[in-house]
Nucleic acid binder design. Structure first.
Length: 583
DNA sequence: TGTGCGCTAATTCTACGCAC
DNA sequence: GTGCGTAGAATTAGCGCACA
């Protein structure tokens, strides 16, 4: 037996549409009647639509009825692929993204071609961009959903169109539908650049995934007629909006039993991303890549260990947040040192997990590591500057050099950044006023003899009150000894005091005599600070020198020896020299 | 006899538990 | 954290009764 009207399959036409057309073309009221002709014993009036899509009926008999090769009929059925997918046109579609039971149809397209577009079974397809109209899914006469068993669809559709007010199609809805249509028709589309060259099944993967987990996070949108449209927003603001979603689940974990970790926050999302069935989809690869990047750069709600196998090890090893153990490993320091760094506020946790574990930003750890690597102990810093530790401490206590860490009651460590020392040396270089030349070489004074304490000396050097030379040393470019204070040989004469040298001249005696005179109390002296040396220098009170000079004469000062007598001397009292007085 | 549809079993999906 | 298992929800398919 053959059907009277043996229609040909139209391009891209699937079996339910073909059967519907055959039933209409041969005067049957609906598919059910035709199915009976195929030997299907339907016990009720419902069309087993899913069976029709998947060719789960006697397709050989259908081929015979329409007098067409069975192979051609078979090519228009969907092939089950794994538990969750089916293949068609060399693509693996996610079955749950399709509605095989109910019908959506563009009345205008249908009136033009009399076929039902498989694309309209896609749940996220909501409008026809060619005719800029919503897809019809409800029978306006009774308010019920259109199904494959709805009667007289062909004749009723044109009538319904007249009565149905046009629903406004939003821009996002139009673009998403247009992109779907372009992919289905294998036309280039640049609506979502982030999708690159994903095919339709892969786009469906991405949109289903995003809308599903968006609804899970924000279920208030669940009543929406077009829940899939939210995917448009995600694709237009990729990956930022996806990151926001992941951040939401970071703050509102999917699993409440655990305390921390990827698995806790993203359990179902993570399982879906990593499932074997989805692993072949470039759409899921796109999602996984963004997920990995989020984990790498934003995820702070969990510790990581070797148990995580589904996240690339490179991602984990370069993630943005680390716990204390990992931070210590990066810094290569023991717990005690880590605690010191925390106590001294070198490091602060970015977040604290529910179980009390602190998480640190990797950037903070790396920055600190770099700082610590350039730090020296007090001993090392003193060695670098070629100063004693005592003098370096003077500079630190005087605020000239600022250490990173200073010993306290709870800490015995010094940490001085090399950068800080370099800055100190640079300041000295920039303030140096002179170069050592032949003319001023004799004026150069070692700082230890400069007459002020070391801290004051350096302060005055940096403040410009004391001139100093810069004599670069290639072998020790940080040594303080490169900077040599210079001072004038002349000092303002003091009317009241004589230096020992001045006293020698004034009294016309050898300096040993001056000290002997002081010792024997012939002249008065006192130790006084001078600019030329750090140590106080003995000074002679000028008036006492004058008194001595008036009272006593030296041998070479007298011209009439007979009128003078020796009052002190080796022969008299063992004094160093002979002192004379007029008789 | 054909049809509509309430009801429910079967199936699929989703979210979660648990052992390791 | 992983992988397996499963309870229960959601959806689909099919039974069978009522009615024209």
């Amino acid at each position: 037996m053959k059907l009277l009207n043996r229609l040909y399959l139209k391009p891209n036409e699937l079996l339910p549409s073909y059967l519907h057309r055959l039933a209409n073309g041969n005067g049957y009221r609906n598919i059910q009647t035709l199915m009976k002709l195929l030997g299907e014993e339907l016990v009720n009036t419902r069309v087993p639509s899913k069976r029709l899509f998947f060719g789960d009926f006697d397709t050989e008999k259908l081929a015979s009825l329409v007098n067409q090769p069975h192979q051609q009929i078979e090519s228009r059925q969907l092939i089950k692929h794994g538990a969750t997918r089916f293949s068609y046109m060399e693509q693996n579609f996610l079955a749950k993204a399709f509605d095989f039971t109910y019908l959506k149809v563009c009345p205008h397209c249908y009136s033009e071609v009399s076929t039902f577009n498989f694309l309209n079974s896609l749940k996220m397809k909501s409008c026809c961009t060619k005719h800029r109209c919503s897809l019809l899914s409800i029978n306006p006469d009774n308010g019920k959903k259109l199904s494959w068993s709805t009667h007289h669809l062909k004749t009723e559709l044109p009538e319904w169109v007249k009565d149905i007010p046009a629903r406004e199609i939003t821009e996002q809805e139009f673009l998403l539908n247009q992109h779907i249509e372009h992919l289905w028709e294998q036309q280039p589309s640049s609506i979502y650049p982030v999708l690159n060259n994903l095919n339709l099944s892969e786009l469906i993967d991405v949109c289903s995934f995003l809308s599903h987990f968006h609804l899970r996070a924000f279920p208030t949108h669940q009543d929406s007629d077009t829940p899939f449209l939210i995917a448009h927003d995600y694709l237009c603001d990729w990956p930022n909006k996806f990151y926001e979603l992941l951040d939401y689940f970071q703050k509102h974990p999917m699993r409440m039993k655990g305390l921390t970790g990827i698995r806790n926050c993203y359990r179902d999302l993570y399982d879906d991303l990593c499932s074997i069935e989805n692993s072949q989809s470039d759409g899921y690869r796109l999602l996984k890549k963004a997920f990995d990047q989020f984990i790498q750069s934003h995820f702070s709600n969990g510790n990581f260990n070797s148990k995580i196998t589904l996240i690339d090890s490179d991602i984990l090893s370069s993630r943005a947040f680390v716990n204390q153990t990992q931070a210590m490993a990066v810094l290569d320091i023991p717990v005690s040192k880590f605690k010191v760094l925390l106590r001294e506020s070198f490091l602060k946790p970015k977040t604290v997990l529910k179980n009390g574990d602190a998480m640190y930003a990797r950037t903070d750890i790396n920055t600190l590591k770099t700082r610590l690597e350039r730090c020296l102990s007090l001993e090392g810093a003193a060695k670098l500057l070629d100063l004693s530790q005592y003098r370096l401490r003077l500079l630190i206590n005087g605020g000239i050099i600022k250490p990173l860490l200073k010993p306290t009651k709870a800490n015995r460590d010094w940490l001085i950044e090399k950068e800080e020392l370099e800055s100190f040396v640079k300041r000295l270089v920039s303030c140096a006023q002179l170069k050592v030349t032949k003319s001023n070489k004799h004026q150069v004074k070692q700082f230890q003899f400069f007459g002020v304490d070391f801290l004051e000396l350096v302060k005055q050097m940096l403040g410009g009150q004391i001139a100093y030379t810069y004599n670069p040393l290639k072998r020790s470019p940080m040594a303080f000894k490169q900077f040599i204070p210079v001072r004038s040989m002349r000092e303002q004469p003091d009317p009241e005091w004589l230096s020992p040298a001045e006293a020698c001249t004034f009294l016309e005696v050898n300096k040993n005599v001056v000290y002997e005179l002081l010792k024997k109390d012939f002249i008065k002296g006192k130790k006084k600070s001078v600019k030329r040396t750090a140590r106080p220098v003995l000074h002679i009170h000028k008036s006492s020198a004058i008194e001595f000079k008036n009272a006593y004469q030296l041998r070479h000062q007298i011209h009439e020896p007979e009128r003078y007598t020796v009052v002190h001397g080796k022969s008299v009292d063992g004094f160093m020299i002979n002192l004379y007085q007029r008789i």
